[in-house]
Computed example of a mutant assay.
Amino acid sequence: MKKLMMALAMFGGVLFSTQAQNNDKAPVKKIEVTGTAEEEVLPDKIFVSVTLREYFKDKDNKNRVDILVLEQQLQKAVAEAGLSKEALTVGGINGYREWWGKKKPTNFLESKTYTLALANLSKIDAILNRVDEKGIFSTNIERFEYSKIEELKKQVKIKALQNAKEKANYLLAGIGEQLGEALEIYEIDNGYYPQPVYAAMKREMAMAADAAPMQESTVDVQKIKVRFDMKAVFKIK
């Protein structure tokens, strides 16, 4: 029993001595900085919404322009622009009845909403100019996309981390210190992707749809901006 108590006492003394040595160890000098990077790219996928609606050529509800006629005009315009059939899809079908004064509605007019997938907006004006102007109810940009967005996010994060290291380097150089290895790295995910501007598309309709030349727009779309902050802790040598 006496030997056991002596052994425990010796073990406790070694443990206390080790802890004391650890407590006496000098703290690691370190610097914590945040790096920032951002990139802007043009979207390579643009989705445009086009709504066609039936209408009457005459005021007395005669000579209705059928939705299929308008649809065929749009399909033909898309093909003439060099786009595939898959670029145009139906997104919704609606209908309504017109009321004339106190009379009950008798005429049902149909409307269809299409989604047109484009690589850019260079051909959109020429496509819409080929469709009956009165049959186009509305157009707007649904959304922008960039097919390599994940790769872009990786590149921006790396640049943000490099920016953090560069910042730590010149800060330490200003006080005569040297940068050591990275101790900790934190990802601050604040990437953002602005929504498209839902502004009305201006179109020149001076010429008849079947005679309008296939002119291309030279106006670029809104760019997609990606930004990230990376926090890093470095050892000071």
Rank of each mutant, 00 (worst) to 15 (best):
K3D: 11
K3Y: 11
L8P: 01
G12Q: 02
V14L: 14
V14N: 07
L15V: 13
L15E: 05
L15I: 07
F16I: 10
T18C: 06
Q21F: 15
K25T: 15
P27Y: 13
K30S: 15
I31C: 11
V33L: 15
E39V: 13
E40W: 04
V41E: 07
V41P: 10
D44T: 14
K45E: 14
I46H: 07
F47I: 14
F47M: 10
F47H: 07
T51P: 02
Y55K: 00
K59P: 01
K59A: 13
D60C: 11
N61Q: 08
N61L: 11
N61W: 03
N63E: 06
R64S: 08
R64F: 02
D66A: 12
L68W: 01
L68D: 06
Q72V: 01
L74A: 10
K76D: 11
K76Y: 05
K76P: 00
E80H: 10
A81S: 13
G82A: 12
S84K: 13
S84Y: 05
S84Q: 11
T89R: 06
T89L: 01
T89V: 13
I93G: 00
N94W: 02
R97A: 03
E98W: 08
E98G: 09
W99I: 08
W100H: 13
G101T: 02
G101S: 06
K103H: 08
K103R: 03
K104W: 05
N107Y: 11
E110N: 07
S111L: 01
T113C: 01
Y114K: 07
T115V: 12
A117H: 09
L118W: 06
L118V: 14
L118D: 11
I124G: 02
I124L: 10
A126Q: 08
A126I: 09
I127G: 09
I127E: 05
V131Y: 02
D132T: 12
K134P: 00
K134L: 09
K134Y: 10
G135E: 01
G135C: 04
G135D: 06
T139K: 00
T139Q: 09
T139L: 00
T139W: 00
N140M: 00
I141G: 00
F144A: 08
E145R: 10
S147P: 03
K148I: 06
K153I: 14
K153E: 14
K154P: 00
K154S: 09
K154F: 11
V156K: 02
I158M: 03
K159D: 14
A160N: 08
A160L: 10
Q162L: 06
K165F: 11
K165E: 15
K165M: 15
K167N: 09
K167Q: 14
A173M: 09
G174E: 05
G174R: 04
I175T: 09
G176F: 10
E177F: 07
E181R: 02
L183K: 04
L183I: 15
E184R: 01
I188P: 04
I188W: 02
I188G: 06
N190S: 11
G191K: 00
G191N: 05
Y193S: 04
P194Y: 03
P196S: 01
A199H: 01
K202T: 14
K202H: 07
R203I: 15
M205W: 02
A211D: 12
A212W: 02
P213K: 02
M214V: 15
Q215V: 12
E216T: 14
T218R: 04
T218I: 07
D220P: 14
Q222P: 03
I224T: 02
R227E: 03
R227S: 09
F228H: 05
D229Q: 11
M230C: 07
A232I: 13
I236C: 04
